[in-house]
Simulated assay, not measured.
Amino acid sequence: MSQGALARLFSLHDLPSRLAGGVVAVGNFDGVHRGHQAVFVAARQIAEAERLPLVCLTFEPHPRTVFNPERPVARLTPAPMKARLIEALGFDAVVEQPFDRAFASLDPDHFVQSVLVESLKARHVVAGFDFHYGARRRGTPETLAAAGQDSGFGTTLVPALADAGGETVSSSRIRRLLARGEAGAAASLFGYRWTIRGTVGKGAQIGRTLGYPTANMTLEPETLLAHGIYAVRLRRADGSLHDGVASFGRRPTFDDGAALFETFLFDFSDDLYGETVDVSVFDFLRGEERFDSAAALVEQMDRDAVAAKALLASASPLSDLDQAIAF
């Protein structure tokens, strides 16, 4: 079980000896959603029971992006945010193993021996029901279990997690929800409010002239989230939380320019330029609209602020992870 801050490592070779010989949760884990969390909880329970280090092995960039660079995967949790979530779940380390075609070409048996046995010295490996590994994905959950028996490590394979309607929780399903603006529905599958991290930059400062100064961030890819207005909560590097309302889109009333994620914080006057912040998206308020005048836009923004304040005031944590991230 974690005894301190997460060790974020960028290669198998970076693993310190004190963290070798532990329980390893392995997978891509983009989104760290409730299905992934079931894997993490199973791994943590084993590590606690056996008093072993708890390590997550994941891969960067996403393997599907390596094989199809023309259509990169829209990442729900880029590596820094994934690491923060994994830390909140009690891990000692995350290994972000570089993934390229050479690594992908490892024979499944070689993957087990070189990665799990020799580099990590895994005592127990935990993976999801659909985990595949090695060249042409020939390694399966079944071959992993057999390899564990041969190589002396235990294996736990976690079944698919379904929601109340019986549908499997998955990253692709969450992406579809966010693309429709359904942040609240996505949060029920995440098990926490989806949170984006970015550095605040200067925009055209239109909001300042309207009495709504905003902290502007670029969201990549811009297709990940539907354009519109959202109730949000921002966390600064010092840990302080600030409620607000965000507009994601192209500002059709003014310039119809490049998409920006623009957050207005209630009762806040500090300068955030250049600061890296996390913004948790609680729910969708309305779609992006073009107004006939700036005055009409401001009237609607006033209504948006009231709606966002009411929504955030009544919000409660969805889980311990949500408590750690957004409350």
Results as ranks from 00 to 15, higher is better:
Gly31Asn: 05
Tyr212Phe: 15
Thr143Cys: 10
Leu12Trp: 03
Arg290Glu: 06
Val277Gly: 09
Arg233Glu: 00
Ala127Val: 14
Val306Glu: 05
Gly211Asn: 15
Gln97Val: 11
Leu6Cys: 09
Ala25Ile: 10
Val26Ala: 15
Arg233Cys: 07
Leu54Tyr: 00
Ala74Gln: 06
Gly287Met: 02
His36Tyr: 01
Ala47Asn: 02
Ala183Val: 09
Ser105Cys: 12
Phe111Pro: 04
Gln45Arg: 14
Asp100Leu: 14
Asn28Leu: 15
Arg137Ile: 11
His36Gln: 13
Leu297Glu: 00
Thr195Tyr: 07
Glu299Pro: 01
Val277Gln: 08
Ser171Asn: 01
Val26Glu: 02
Thr168Gly: 00
Ser269Gly: 08
Arg180His: 04
Leu15Thr: 05
Asn68Leu: 14
Ala164Tyr: 02
Glu167Gln: 07
Ala43Phe: 09
Thr140Cys: 09
Leu19Thr: 09
Thr253Lys: 05
Ile46Tyr: 00
Arg71Tyr: 04
Arg173Gln: 04
Thr253Asn: 09
Lys121Val: 08
Leu161His: 04
Gly207Arg: 02
Ala296Trp: 05
Leu57Met: 06
Tyr273Thr: 14
Glu262His: 10
Ile86Ser: 02
Leu9Pro: 06
Val32Asn: 10
Phe282Trp: 05
Val281Phe: 07
Leu57Arg: 07
Thr58Gly: 10
Asp109His: 12
